[in-house]
């Protein structure tokens, strides 16, 4: 199952960033995902929309390896990672943020990011403290700046506001050399100002970094994505450009005008 380094390197240029083939996830008798097939190009930015319970977060969990899909395959940059544990996928350039912030509340902001940087580099088991000129620590500090958390660098995560915790979530996903990021409702609970900051952060990401974003706020979702996938009841319901999706009558019926969002 393991692919050689050469295969991985050559695959990176040609293969799709993400390829899902017939992903089904059963929770007992409930099919959270039914035969989901999706292809995302390298550098592509895609929004996944759908009402609550449509299977969006389950899809993310299957991609990152938090859950094993009941059937189907997940390919990441051409490599079959279906059986890989989560940390192996992360080390291959996949990142994700969580809908509900999963942070290390007893550690400081910079330590949170430092851990994220350390997770995808060597010497994860090092017993030597990072020195004053530690490169990873410098990267972590730079990242606090990128997400506007520099002044809270040494504060424990517990003192951050909700919006700041969401920003820290994003910083964790940007650590290391991400190639593909899954954003799970990054704008949830943010103020209008924070939302526009978020849009700015997403639009300023380097071009080679592709992502999938789950977002209920259509203003955010459609502004930061090039393509849109609509999900409904665990299945892909429609795919298209933001304009097509926005003007699609069925979509409007189900999601925009349906009024049960």
């Amino acid at each position: 199952m393991k692919t050689s380094v050469a295969q991985r390197l050559s695959a990176a240029g040609t293969a799709n960033a993400l390829e899902l083939r017939g992903i089904t996830k059963m929770f007992g008798a409930l099919a959270a995902l039914k035969d989901v097939t999706m292809t995302v190009q390298p550098g592509e930015r895609r929004a996944v929309l759908g009402s609550n319970g449509a299977g969006k977060t389950t899809l993310f969990n299957c991609i990152t390896g938090d859950f094993l899909p009941t059937s189907g395959t997940v390919r990441l940059f051409g490599e079959d990672v279906t059986e890989f544990p989560a940390f192996e996928r992360i080390r291959r350039g996949l990142r994700r943020t969580y809908q509900i912030s999963l942070l290390f509340s007893n550690l400081s902001v910079v330590d949170n990011i430092y851990l994220a940087c350390r997770g995808v580099s060597r010497a994860r088991f090092s017993l030597i403290r990072p020195g004053v000129d530690d490169a990873l620590m410098a990267t972590a500090e730079a990242l606090t700046e990128a997400v506007h958390l520099h002044e809270f660098m040494n504060s424990p995560v517990a003192v951050l506001s909700y919006g700041q915790q969401r920003q820290l979530e994003i910083a964790l996903a940007l650590a290391g050399a991400p190639r593909f990021i899954l954003f799970d409702e990054p704008a949830a609970g943010l103020s209008p100002t924070e939302r526009s900051e978020l849009v700015e952060i997403l639009l300023n990401l380097p071009e080679h970094i592709g992502y999938i974003i789950i977002e209920h706020d259509m203003d955010v979702a459609l502004r930061v994505s090039q393509s849109v996938t609509m999900m409904h009841n665990g299945q892909i319901f429609k795919e298209g450009t933001p304009q097509e999706i926005e003007s699609d009558p069925e979509v409007q019926e189900l999601y925009l005008g349906g009024g049960n969002e």
Binding site: Y98, L102, F104, Y114, L115, G119, R124, F125, L127
Partner: peptide, 24 residues
């Protein structure tokens, strides 16, 4: 306060997130 110790505290606080950061 070393990478190992910090990661261990990360595992304590949130093991699922640690896996999602690339830690075994």
């Amino acid at each position: 306060r070393s990478p190992f110790g910090l990661a261990l505290q990360g595992v304590r606080d949130n093991s699922r997130r640690m896996a999602a950061l690339g830690f075994n």
